[in-house]
Simulated assay, not measured.
Amino acid sequence: MRAAPSVTVNVLPSRLACGALLGLALAAVGVSAVWGAARSDAIGAVVALSVTAHAAWLVYAAWRRPALVLRWDGLKWWLGPTGGEPRPGAVAIALDLGGAMLLRFRAAPRTRRRHASTWLPVERAWLPAEWHALRCAVYSPPPAANTGATDDPGG
Rank of each mutant, 00 (worst) to 15 (best):
L134Q: 06
A137C: 00
W63P: 05
R135S: 01
L127A: 08
M101C: 14
P141D: 10
V138C: 05
T118E: 15
E123A: 04
L26D: 09
P141R: 13
P109E: 05
R106H: 12
P13C: 10
M101P: 12
A55P: 09
V11Y: 13
R2V: 11
G155W: 06
Y60W: 15
G19Q: 09
L79I: 03
P121H: 04
M1L: 09
V91A: 08
V122R: 03
A45D: 08
W63M: 13
V47G: 01
R135K: 10
T8G: 09
N10P: 00
R104A: 04
G80I: 12
G23D: 12
P109Y: 02
R114H: 12
A125K: 06
A100G: 13
H54Q: 09
R113K: 10
A55F: 08
P128S: 10
M1C: 05
S6G: 00
A42S: 06
R104P: 04
R124V: 00
A53T: 08
A137F: 00
P88W: 05
G154E: 14
S40M: 11
G155T: 03
G44P: 00
G155F: 06
V34Y: 04
G36S: 03
T118M: 12
S14Y: 09
P5Q: 05
V9P: 07
A137T: 00
V34E: 07
A27L: 14
A90G: 05
D41G: 11
G155H: 07
L134N: 02
S50P: 01
T82N: 03
A25R: 12
V69Y: 08
R113V: 03
P121G: 02
G148R: 01
V122F: 03
V51E: 06
T111C: 03
G148E: 01
A20R: 10
V69I: 14
L95V: 10
E85H: 15
A28C: 12
V69C: 11
T8K: 12
V51K: 06
A61W: 08
A137E: 01
L12C: 05
A27G: 13
A125D: 12
I43H: 09
A129M: 11
A28H: 08
R15C: 01
L49S: 15
D96A: 10
T111V: 07
I93P: 14
N10D: 11
W57T: 02
